[in-house]
């Protein structure tokens, strides 16, 4: 089943519905994603876009309503033992007992992993050597997140699933996590990462997928994703009117605007010409109403689960 060309993760037509009948809500509506070995895919999306709902299926915590997930060609349910051995997960919120020390937490974790890395090695990987005898309760948010990563790395995972791994971290901690993730990717691990930070995606991702209203609406390299979005030219004429032009060909449009201004002797204030950025692309997508038969909600998946249970 698994030869070296099999993708680390392959999601096809994934659907996930909460509730049944009238109150049923489809949070994931036919998602296709592929993460190749040695690459990092950043999954972006607004709150309630269905990222976490998708992640939970991939992590094996929830069942899909439709479609398929393959981890190195394996079915995460039927081939659970083998699939789990090769994956590492960092959930959106850390889950630790505050009264255990860092070392005790990792010892416990190591006992649950086939062929674990030595605890000392993993502690060094995430820069927590000086904190091994500290209770988790006393760790800072950043240290706790690095302990999460340490737990996920104990099993030498070939596929890492990181759900917002740097949320709440200070800039320095974020950089350290980035460096660690980049190194793991360079050593051949595949990484599926969700994030709210667009700079994180720009910094780390080989592939970017933007999810909106349960579907993947853009996918590709940073250049490809941004390239599908028009460039903009904006200026204000002396009568105080601001104009924004969208164009596929920034140079030509800008030349036309400047030529027109020169010919008519108009002074343009606040002149701004730019290619689309990941941010403008993302915001344009986030601003699109859901093409949906049920009314749009901002509810996160957690709220939704609560509502239907």
């Amino acid at each position: 089943m698994d030869n070296h060309t099999t993708p680390a993760l392959e999601i096809r037509g994934l659907r996930r519905t909460y509730g049944t009948g009238e109150s049923a809500y489809e949070a994931v509506r036919g998602v296709d994603l592929t993460v190749e070995r040695g690459t990092l895919l950043a999954l972006l999306g607004t709150n309630g876009a269905g990222k976490t709902s998708t992640m939970e299926v991939v992590e094996g915590l929830a069942a899909a309503s439709g479609g398929s997930v393959r981890v190195f060609g394996l079915d995460p349910v039927a081939d659970r033992a083998e699939a789990r051995r090769r994956t590492g997960v960092v959930l959106q919120v850390s889950g630790f007992s505050g009264d255990l020390t860092v070392a005790e937490t990792l010892e416990m974790e190591a006992a649950t992993v086939t062929d674990p890395r030595p605890v000392s090695e993993v502690v060094a990987l995430v820069d927590l050597e000086h904190r091994v005898d500290t209770k988790v309760l006393s760790l800072s948010g950043g240290e706790r997140r690095r302990l999460d990563l340490a737990c996920a790395l104990l099993g030498k995972p070939e596929l890492l699933m990181l759900d917002e791994p740097t949320t709440g971290l200070d800039p320095e901690s974020r950089r350290r996590v980035w460096e660690l993730v980049r190194n793991l990717r360079d050593e051949g691990a595949a990484v599926l990462l969700t994030t709210h930070y667009l700079d994180e995606a720009e910094e780390l991702a080989d592939q970017i997928a933007i999810m909106h209203a349960g579907r993947i609406v853009r996918e590709g390299t940073l250049a490809e994703v941004v390239g599908q979005q028009p460039s903009t030219v904006r200026y204000t004429t002396p009568d105080g009117e601001t104009t924004t032009l969208e164009t596929e060909d920034l140079q030509t449009t800008l030349t036309e605007v400047l030529t027109w201004a020169a010919e008519h002797g108009v002074r343009l204030s606040g002149l701004d010409a730019r290619h689309a950025s990941l941010e403008s692309t993302f915001l344009a997508i986030a601003g699109t109403p859901r093409s949906d038969d049920t009314p749009a909600t901002d509810a996160s998946t957690d709220d939704l689960e609560g509502a239907v249970r």
Binding site: G60, R85, S94, F96, T112, V113, C151, G155
Partner: peptide, 16 residues
């Protein structure tokens, strides 16, 4: 308590 701490959820993503 382990459930509230999300320990159960985390452990369940592993081999256990």
């Amino acid at each position: 308590t382990r459930r509230d701490e999300l320990v159960l959820k985390r452990i369940r993503t592993g081999e256990t």
